[in-house]
């Protein structure tokens, strides 16, 4: 077995992601806008209730929001568009005929698509929300630096695991698209799930106490919530080991069950227009 075809598949999708520079800028403006609205809301809420003992400080909530906004395109919002279209048109048959491991083939494309979209945006937004915001005197609203050098390293490892978890969830959406013969349903269900469960809508630590542990244990928390907590040095029940453990567990579980489900799906698939 050789790794080359998967690398090719990765590079192709990565280049597509980098193609649309204007889209990157447009996305940046949108992310800044949504970020600013959330920050003003949190600031108003925190200042109005100074004696509430919240699980994270206002400064932490702001940093959390900025990182979430910069990694918005890393979330598994739906299936890979190319696969969804192929499922609709019947062109998916070409993918089935390739002498490669289908899971790895699609996974490398999905991962490249997520990273190609997210990395340039994240770097730009981090620059704008971090040093630049501090320079123009918006220090209280800016993205805080990592808690320590170790925290930064741990967060980096955790972000990489998170990207793989996200790509594995995209694989599940790909399978759903192949079954329902249309990509639209996966966007309709995937986007709200990802936005809520990853902590994009509201930082996961701020949800009611009874929901917090449950929210930490579901797979979407591994994409960006756990890496951000490590970055800020926030305490996680059980420490670093649990944090990375949850991520590894979900990566394995999603891969194994997903592979099994994919093989069942393609063995009984009826092709449209083929």
């Amino acid at each position: 077995m050789t790794i080359r075809p998967y690398v090719t598949s990765f590079v192709l999708q990565w280049k597509i992601g980098l193609r649309y520079r204007l889209a990157v800028l447009a996305g940046l403006v949108a992310q800044m806008w949504f970020g600013a609205i959330s920050l003003m809301a949190y600031a108003a809420v925190y200042h109005h209730a100074p004696d509430v003992n919240a699980p994270m400080t206002l400064r932490q909530a702001m940093t959390y929001t900025w990182i979430q906004q910069s990694f918005f395109t890393l979330l598994p919002l739906g299936c890979l568009p190319a696969i969804g279209e192929a499922a609709k048109s019947g062109a998916i048959v070409y993918d089935l005929l390739r002498p490669v491991d289908l899971w790895n083939w699609w996974l490398s494309a999905s991962l490249a698509r997520l990273l190609g979209n997210a990395v340039p945006r994240a770097l730009l937004l981090a620059l704008v929300a971090g040093p630049l915001a501090a320079l123009v005197g918006l220090n209280g609203w800016s993205l805080a630096p990592p808690a320590s050098f170790e925290a930064a390293l741990l967060a980096l490892v955790s972000f990489i695991l998170g990207a793989f978890i996200s790509a594995s969830i995209v694989m599940w959406w790909n399978i759903v698209a192949a079954r329902t013969l249309s990509p639209l349903g996966t966007y309709a269900v995937g986007t709200p799930l990802a936005v809520l469960l990853s902590g994009m809508l509201l930082p996961l630590p701020l949800y009611p106490d009874w929901a917090r542990d449950l929210l930490l244990l579901q797979p979407f928390a591994g994409i960006s919530d756990i890496p951000i907590r490590l970055y800020m040095g926030m305490p996680i029940p059980g420490g670093v080991v649990t944090a990375l453990g949850i991520q590894c567990f979900w990566l394995l579980a999603l891969t194994m069950i997903g592979r099994f489900w994919m093989n069942r799906t393609i063995s009984r698939m009826e092709l449209q227009g083929a």
Binding site: A44, H48, L206, P208
Partner: peptide, 9 residues
């Protein structure tokens, strides 16, 4: 959830 934690917005 924000209401639940902070009492009011």
């Amino acid at each position: 959830s924000l209401f639940h934690r902070f009492g009011s917005i």
